[in-house]
């Protein structure tokens, strides 16, 4: 599989002014984003996601290290930029223009003209579901509509790479689902997507690989299957009593949720399915369901970030 974006030992230090200290926002980042994947770029606030993305686009300059996009280090050349669409975090789009005017402005900046431009404007408006509002001025748009126009301007040139900084922040559940579906649709068309987000559930649903960043250091990177391997069993049983619950907890079984006689149990990894059934039989529990349970991305995130911030505190 070809690599479309590669960073090698990338560092960024924001120089402090008289009153503020230098900020080492990114430390020796090595990242490889492969063709056609959705790459989830995660990390708590201030971990360096936006900093990385802005360097990829030539808006910021690396303190040291190397960036290659589509095999070229000349990331500021028009030839490379033509292939990239970018949705910035929390950007504003000019209020005095109509939806379609904004898109044709951005389309012209990509060198599109005439019939080709009109065709692309139509197609992207259709793609993001904004055909109905194309003649309206942006000042009358809702947040969700603005975000869709933002996506449309990123897509106007039919790019090979799409870089989205928090594409669904502040949107309602329906709009989020629409955008998620759109992103999956774009991947089907062969577009590579780099998405920074705090919406872990969404990222888990659509990403092929994720990376977690903490204070400018890459903590982990891999496919969902690689990272979320810890499989445990989860069981739902009936006829639970306090004594039984206590005896189960002695064996390391966690009673996660108990309403009346019904309970949800989480079994440690060392116990097999047979052990679980035996346990139930021995205690006269009625087994309703049993299923393997994968760690969620949210749990992984909390675990990784938690241990990273602990080890930092120890170091201090």
């Amino acid at each position: 599989m070809t690599t479309v974006i590669r960073t090698t030992a990338l560092n960024k230090i924001y120089e402090g002014s008289l009153r503020s200290q230098d900020v080492h926002a990114l430390k020796d980042l090595n990242l490889e984003i492969r063709e056609g994947e959705i790459f989830g770029y995660l990390g708590p606030n201030g971990s360096g996601k936006t900093t990385t993305i802005k360097m990829l686009l030539g808006l910021l300059f690396p303190t040291s290290g190397k960036i290659e996009i589509l095999g070229s280090e000349a990331i500021e050349s028009a030839k490379i930029k033509r292939n990239i669409g970018y949705l910035p975090e929390g950007a504003y789009y000019p209020d005095f223009l109509r939806g379609e005017e904004i898109l044709s402005y951005y389309g012209r900046l990509y060198g599109l003209r005439g019939a080709e431009l009109n065709k692309r404007v139509d197609e992207t408006l259709e793609l993001v579901g904004m055909q109905h509002a194309r003649k309206r001025f942006l000042r009358g748009y809702s947040k969700g509509m603005r975000q869709r126009i933002g996506l449309a301007q990123a897509l106007i040139s039919d790019p090979k790479i799409l870089i989205l900084d928090e594409p669904t922040t502040g949107l309602d559940p329906i709009a989020r689902k629409d955008i998620r579906d759109l992103l999956v649709e774009l991947r089907k068309r062969g577009i590579t997507l780099l998405i920074s987000s705090h919406e872990l559930l969404e990222v888990e649903l659509i990403s092929d690989r994720v990376a977690i960043l903490f204070e400018g250091v890459m903590q982990t990177l891999g496919t969902m299957d690689e990272l979320l391997t810890q499989r445990e069993l989860s069981m739902t049983v009936e006829h639970m009593t306090d004594e039984i619950a206590a005896s189960l907890e002695e064996k390391g079984i966690v009673v996660e949720d108990r309403t009346g006689i019904r309970a949800l149990l989480r079994l440690p990894q060392k116990l097999s399915t047979y052990d679980a059934i035996e346990l139930c039989q021995a205690r006269k529990l009625n087994l309703l369901s049993i299923s393997p349970r994968r760690e969620t991305l949210e749990e992984l995130f909390v675990r990784i970030v938690g241990s990273a911030s602990e080890s930092r505190e120890v170091a201090q």
């Binding site: 686009l57 028009a78 030839k79 930029k81 910035p88 929390g90 950007a91 504003y92 789009y93 900046l109």
Partner: peptide
């Protein structure tokens, strides 16, 4: 200030 510059400079405009 309005960050419109991000969307413009990321296009193939030097």
């Amino acid at each position: 200030e309005t960050k419109v510059i991000y969307t413009v400079l990321s296009k193939p405009v030097s």
